[in-house]
Design a binder for these strands. Structure first.
Lengths: 137, 137
DNA sequence: ATTATTGCAAAGCCTTTGCATCCTA
DNA sequence: TAGGATGCAAAGGCTTTGCAATAAT
């Protein structure tokens, strides 16, 4: 994703374009590691020592509200961010805390069809994902 | 669940039986509210003002390690406990943070069959659950 | 008697907040 | 230039830790 594409992403989210937002979005979108705020901070800090951790937190939150990144919580209660917006499931490694994507169209179709058929009473579903816990072998 | 049954549960977990463990297990098992440590503390504190919050945390953790309760993390990164050990999914209300159980045999069967058929390379699955985010209506 | 458990308070980790300064549109 | 974004430091919420006192086998 080049500078222009990132700028578009940010502006499309209805946000002002700033240098901080640029490099923070870049860091999140370039990895598949489900980064923590701390990890993002370390990435951007190398080239931009003046960016503060607080700004990283605020900016990531702004992105989540603008719907250009996703946020979720890992098994230790730490916030994780993800530039991939399509629905997908996660593999949580109980031993290393690594989180890997698990994408499978058949599974997604299966689940979508199930919930289309089985509406939940009194509950408006916004997002469904499968959490798979275990360990790498 | 009466006193004897709780005692059995604790002893079966390979743990010493103490008064604190008794009342803490009782509080967790009597609710379907996916309690936080704080909630458990408030419950037991009424009748047992000497039990400390630290003991509640340690005891809940001990129970998790002994496999007699489950632990997971809510959308805000707060630990939740659950006396129900069978696999089941959760409905997360984004607005109220309430967590409700969602049990559906057909869904569980669907998912079990899917993963029996589709082994994940290099990953040993220990637990699968479906996370459904949305809001009550 | 020995070893684990408890209570208390302090410390830790991650995250949010407040406010003055700075910058984008 | 007006209003939002940033940097910094302080505070906040939840959880863990250390240690002396206590209780269970």
């Amino acid at each position: 994703m080049d500078t222009e594409a990132i700028k578009d992403k940010i502006v499309q989210g209805g946000l002002k374009f700033t240098h901080q937002r640029m490099v923070i979005y870049e860091a999140v979108s370039k990895t598949h590691n489900h980064p923590t705020a701390e990890w993002v901070y370390e990435q951007v800090h190398e080239q931009n020592p003046s960016i503060s951790l607080g700004t990283v937190y605020k900016t990531l939150d702004t992105f989540v509200n603008a719907n250009i990144i996703q946020k979720f919580v890992d098994n230790n209660g730490v916030m994780r961010f993800d530039g991939i917006m399509e629905a997908h499931s996660h593999l949580y490694d109980n031993e290393t805390n690594e989180i890997r994507d698990y994408r499978n169209q058949e599974l997604e179709k299966l689940i979508k069809e199930f919930f289309d058929k089985n509406k939940i009473r009194d509950f408006e579903v916004e997002d469904i994902s499968v959490v798979i816990k275990g360990h790498n072998k």
